[in-house]
């Protein structure tokens, strides 16, 4: 994770240096395309992982329940936090 953050900082510096380059305004599209590429590769990885596939039918439902609970629990709590402490900063 340390190297990942370092990579991002390197990107920020590169971005700062290339501020004047016009074609960089399309970087959002490049990010979207790379996101699709990453999802595809993740899919390939999971699709070919026998350990995951073999257990999907028996343990998958329990895992799905826990995943949804964990994700949505944090989403609800974060929504309350945002409403209470952060929303006014944005509207200011």
């Amino acid at each position: 994770m340390f190297y990942l953050i370092l990579t991002m900082l390197a990107g920020v510096v590169a971005g700062l240096l290339m501020r004047k380059v016009k074609s960089l305004s399309h970087i959002g599209k490049a990010i979207s395309v790379t996101i699709y590429l990453m999802l595809f590769v993740l899919g390939v990885k999971i699709g070919s992982d026998e350990n995951i596939l073999a257990n999907l039918s028996t343990l998958g439902l329990q895992a799905l329940l826990l995943a949804l609970a964990g994700a949505m629990g944090s989403v609800f709590f974060a929504a309350v936090l945002y409403k209470l402490l952060f929303q006014k900063d944005v509207n200011r």
């Binding site: 990107g11 920020v12 971005g15 700062l16 240096l17 290339m18 960089l24 970087i27 990010i31 790379t34």
Partner: peptide
């Protein structure tokens, strides 16, 4: 992540 960095930088 590098691309995200660039987009933040500019």
């Amino acid at each position: 992540i590098f691309l995200v960095g660039i987009s933040m930088g500019c």
